[in-house]
């Protein structure tokens, strides 16, 4: 059943990684990605890989799951590596027909590939260990300064929350409507692109109608529950930094500084 899919790929747990403040995880993940992009050094990348492996171990994430998350980007990785290998000028290693493989090309391909893979691993780890709701929470907090420039931070995070709440409901509904139209002989699989697009109307119209109905009812229900926007709102779970967070922040900071140093020194 489609509705059984866990959203945001969150796997509940009680590990060190799960206990961390989502803001800290989000910031560390972000900085990690920046550091990956400003460094290009073997030792630094080895350290980064170690950092990821440690994260996987501590969060008890199955490496299989992580590999699975890499699958969709494999094509992109292969494609950019091939381009890099063949098109970057430099010291030629092998030459055949009109193609040549250069040392620089190989190195760039290697860095690009490692970069993308580690980037995906780091964000996946974040998603696996942080519930969608605490992620939105973290975003709302981190974006709070934008309130000053009139960016509707609270509304934005409320929207995210409601969207996440309703995605499974709408998936389930789409499933039902599709089945109902199939029972009336609808055919979504054959015909040219126009026929197929047209075949979607019997699904999209009911879906829109019901979404409007849901939105209307939800708005009334929210009003009944005294929703008046973000002003004066308190929260059930207040984000608070704990000892774990400080340990993690210091550890990450040292690792990142080391990576940059290694890059500068150029070992």
């Amino acid at each position: 059943m489609l509705k059984d899919i866990t959203l945001g790929q969150f796997f509940p747990g009680n590990t060190f990684m799960h206990k961390l403040d989502p803001r800290v995880k989000l910031v560390v993940c972000f900085v990690f990605i920046i550091v990956l992009f400003i460094t290009e050094n073997l030792a630094a990348y080895a350290l980064a890989a170690l950092f990821i492996i440690l994260g996987v171990k501590v969060s008890k994430t199955s490496p299989k799951m992580l590999l699975k998350s890499l699958k969709p980007i494999m094509f992109l990785v292969l494609f950019t590596s091939i381009l890099n290998i063949f098109y970057i000028e430099g010291e030629v290693l092998v030459r055949f027909w009109i193609l040549k493989v250069t040392k620089e090309g190989l190195m760039t391909a290697f860095y690009m590939t490692s970069r993308i893979i580690m980037l995906v691993c780091a964000t996946s780890l974040l998603m696996y260990t942080t519930s969608p709701i605490s992620l939105t929470d973290a975003l709302e907090h981190l974006l709070a300064p934008l309130n000053k420039v009139k960016f509707p931070v609270h509304e934005f995070s409320m929207m995210m929350t409601i969207a996440m709440r309703f995605i499974p409901t709408l998936i389930e509904e789409t499933d039902k409507i599709m089945a109902a139209q199939k029972a009336r002989g609808a055919d979504f699989e054959s015909g040219n692109i126009f026929a197929r697009a047209k075949a979607l109307i019997p699904i999209l119209v009911p879906l829109f109608v019901s979404s409007f109905r849901r939105a209307d009812e939800l708005a009334t229900a929210m009003e009944c529950r005294l929703y008046q926007g973000g002003e004066g709102r308190t929260r059930l779970n207040v984000l608070k930094l704990t000892k774990y967070d400080y340990v993690f922040m210091v550890f990450s900071a040292i690792s990142f500084v080391l990576m940059i140093l290694l890059n500068v020194v150029g070992i």
Binding site: A180, K182, R184, G185, V209
Partner: peptide
Amino acid sequence: SAATRRAARFACGLVFQYPEYQLF
């Protein structure tokens, strides 16, 4: 086959729960 499945849809009409949500 796809053809027998399609034939079955017409031989056996199925009205789903809350069928009014399929009107379009």
